[in-house]
Simulated assay, not measured.
Amino acid sequence: MKWKELEISTTYQAFAAITNLLDEFGIGSIFKEALSQESEDEILVKAYCDEDSFSSRKFAELKKKITNLKEYDLDIGSGKLRVNELQEEDWANNWKENFKPLKVTDKIVIKPTWEDYQASADEIIIEIDPGQAFGTGQHETTTSCLEMIEKYLKPEMNCLDIGTGTGILAIAAAKLEAGATVGIDISPVAITAAQENAQLNQVADEIEFLEGDLVEVVDQDYDLVIANILPHIILDLIPDLKEVIKPDGKFILSGIVEEKLDRVKERLQEYQFKVEEVVQKNEWVTIVGSQKIVDS
C-alpha cells in the first residue's frame, strides 16, 4: 500500500488547531519537529494517511481550513502544505523514528505498541498503535491534562471527556480507577479510534464513547469533566458546563493559548465558576476549577 505524508509548515501556537483539523479529515499519525534553529515557535507538522483516503479535493479543503484558522487569532506561520508519497515500509519507519515512550508523570507512561518498556509496579501504561491514533498524546495540552487527572481523580469518581479524540484521557481515567467514564466527540472517525485504543488498553468495557455535541448526548452530571479542545470552543462550552458537573465536581480545561487565558477566566467568572489552579507549559494553559458556592 502507498501512503501520503503531509507536511505543514506552521507555528507551535497553531499545532493543536491543525491537529484537530487533521482529525476531522481522518488523517492520523501526527508528529511535530522544529522547523528552524533560530525560532522555537516554527514547527513542521507531519501526518500520514493511505493514498486512497486523501484526494486532491480534500487537499484543497484542508488547505483552506488551515488558512481560516487566522480568523481565531492564531498565528499559523506560512501554513504551507506539502504532500509526499511513501511506500508502506517508509511510513512504518517514520512512525518508529518519531514516536517513542513518554513518561508523563510518575505513574503514567504513553508508549507505542512496538516499543519495549520495562514498567514498574505502580506505573500505568497507555499503549497507542499508529494505525489507530490521530496523535501520540505528547502535546503539552494532553500531558498537562494527564497530570491534572492523576492529581484530582479519586477512585470511583465518574468522568466525562469532551472532545475525546484518541481517547487517551478517558483511558487514563479508567486506568486510574474512575467509576463510569464517558468520552464524546463530534468526529465518528475519532470515536472509532478511541474505541480501538480502549480495546488495546483493555478498558473498553469501562468507557462509553458517544458521537455528538455535549448537550445532545449527555444527560447526567459528573465528578470530573475534562475538555482538551480549542479556546473558542471552550468559550462556547462554558455555559453548558453546569449541566454536566456535579455541585461538588471539578473541571479540567485545556487547549488554551496564553493570549486567551484572561478571556476564558472572565467567561468562567461570568458563569459562577471558580478557578482553582492554572498550569502553563510554554504558551499552552490548563485550568482546573469548580462551581462556586453562592451564599443564600
Rank of each mutant, 00 (worst) to 15 (best):
K2C: 07
K4R: 15
Q13P: 00
L21S: 06
F25I: 08
L35F: 09
S39D: 15
I43E: 00
S55V: 04
K58T: 05
N68Q: 10
Y72C: 03
G79M: 12
N84R: 12
Q87L: 13
A92R: 10
W95Q: 14
F99C: 06
P101A: 05
L102I: 09
A121H: 13
A121C: 12
E123H: 14
E127Q: 14
G131M: 13
G131C: 11
G131A: 11
A133S: 15
G135S: 13
G137S: 09
E140K: 04
C145S: 04
L146N: 01
N158A: 03
N158I: 06
A170S: 08
A170Y: 05
A172D: 11
A174I: 10
G183Y: 00
P188G: 11
V189R: 05
E208T: 12
V215R: 13
V217H: 13
D223E: 11
N228K: 01
I234G: 02
I238V: 09
D240W: 02
K242A: 11
D248M: 11
F251N: 06
L253C: 09
S254D: 04
E259M: 13
V264P: 00
K265V: 07
V279K: 14
K281F: 04
T286F: 00
T286D: 03
I287V: 15
V288K: 01
V294S: 06
